[in-house]
């Protein structure tokens, strides 16, 4: 379990039907690549977030498979076309089995 994992999301507060919004997400995570060695020369085991999904009312916006080449504190920016008011669910899946979720409610404009 990585410590102090904190998801942060920038999502719109309100929307009109059919409007496109830019979403930004950031989660604090060391993303240990499994390539580094500690001071004794032992390989530090891989520990990353390997998947990120964004859903809006159960429909997928984006589903990202991540490899160790994603930087520390993974950041994503993408766009969503919303059919109306609803709720975003952002989910990050950690190698150690932890799942981090964040939600954002969008109201009708």
């Amino acid at each position: 379990m990585a410590d102090n994992v904190k998801p942060r999301v920038r999502a719109p507060r309100s929307t009109a039907a059919g409007e496109t919004h830019t979403l930004k997400t950031l989660i604090s995570h060391p993303m240990e690549s499994g390539q580094r060695k500690d001071s004794d020369g032992n390989t530090i085991p891989r520990s990353i977030i390997h998947r990120f999904t964004c859903e809006f009312d159960g429909e997928t916006v984006i589903d990202v498979t991540m490899e160790p080449a994603i930087s520390t504190n993974p950041y994503f920016e993408f766009e969503a076309k919303l059919p109306g008011a609803g709720e975003f669910v952002f989910t990050w899946y950690d190698d150690d089995g932890s799942v981090y979720t964040e939600t954002a409610t969008v109201e009708a404009a």
């Binding site: 809006f56 429909e59 997928t60 984006i62 994603i70 930087s71 766009e79 076309k81």
Partner: peptide, 23 residues
């Protein structure tokens, strides 16, 4: 390891555009 990421766009994707930061 050559893999970096795979983006799958769902039905609500506003555009097929994404940005991130890589090593």
């Amino acid at each position: 390891l050559p893999g970096v990421a795979t983006f799958e766009f769902g039905p609500l994707a506003g555009s097929h555009h994404a940005s991130t930061r890589i090593r």
